[in-house]
């Protein structure tokens, strides 16, 4: 027989609060734990001060990060570029430079830098189009990287292997570069500047 009817009596307010509490608790754990699980750290070969170097060189960023004659971009300078100034004997006193001279310059071994802004292989990015053609500052995408005294920790996504800088720092599109270098961030800037191109312009 139908003896139910007043079922709502079974649910006391305490049950609801327990539910809300559990929900919030799990959401918080997920929010903090997920990045910790998803991203791993990788050390840079040795420390490097952009600030120090900027004081020594004459032409700013371009002194080391330059265009080649065919319009391609060198990106991180090769060891040869470093050797234009550095010899096997350290120029300064820092222990970092000793490592650099002993392990890399002396052995003529390329430095395996971890590149924060390295994009997945499907992405085409032209520094020439942005710097030489559109006249953007390096800092508009790389932030104050050129003024830093230390290299921050490099983090990468354990699943994809890509740098966390691509899209791991914030999921909501409040931060643009350098905090985030997602396709949406490129697209936003393009759209704001009235450049709406075919997919091929940024993909290969």
């Amino acid at each position: 027989m139908a003896t139910h009817g007043k079922k709502q009596d079974n649910r006391s307010p305490a049950d609801w609060w327990l539910f809300v509490l559990g929900f919030v608790l799990f959401a918080a754990v997920g929010f903090w734990a997920t990045p910790a699980i998803l991203y791993a750290e990788k050390p840079q070969p040795f420390q490097f001060s952009h600030k120090l170097h900027m004081e020594q060189v004459g032409e700013g960023c371009q002194s080391c990060h330059a265009f080649r004659e065919d319009g391609s971009y060198t990106g991180i300078p090769s060891l040869e570029k470093c050797k234009e100034c550095h010899g096997e004997e350290p120029m300064g006193e820092t222990p970092e430079e000793k490592v650099f001279s002993k392990d890399y310059v002396a052995k003529n071994k390329p430095i395996p830098w971890q590149v924060y802004s390295k994009q997945p292989p499907c992405v085409f990015f032209s520094h020439a189009a942005h710097v030489a053609n559109a006249g953007l500052e390096c800092a508009s995408c790389h932030g104050d990287h050129g003024d830093t005294e230390k290299l921050r920790t490099y983090e990468y996504n354990r699943l994809t292997g890509y740098s966390r800088d691509i899209w791991g720092w914030s999921l909501i599109p409040l931060d643009g570069p350098p905090k985030r270098m997602k396709m949406d961030d490129c697209a936003k800037c393009h759209r704001d500047n009235g450049v709406r191109d075919a997919c091929f312009v940024c993909h290969k």
């Binding site: 139908a2 139910h4 009817g5 007043k6 079922k7 709502q8």
Partner: peptide, 10 residues
């Protein structure tokens, strides 16, 4: 229906 105490018919 539930809170107005409507009964389920058999």
């Amino acid at each position: 229906d539930l809170y107005s105490g409507k009964e389920v018919h058999e």
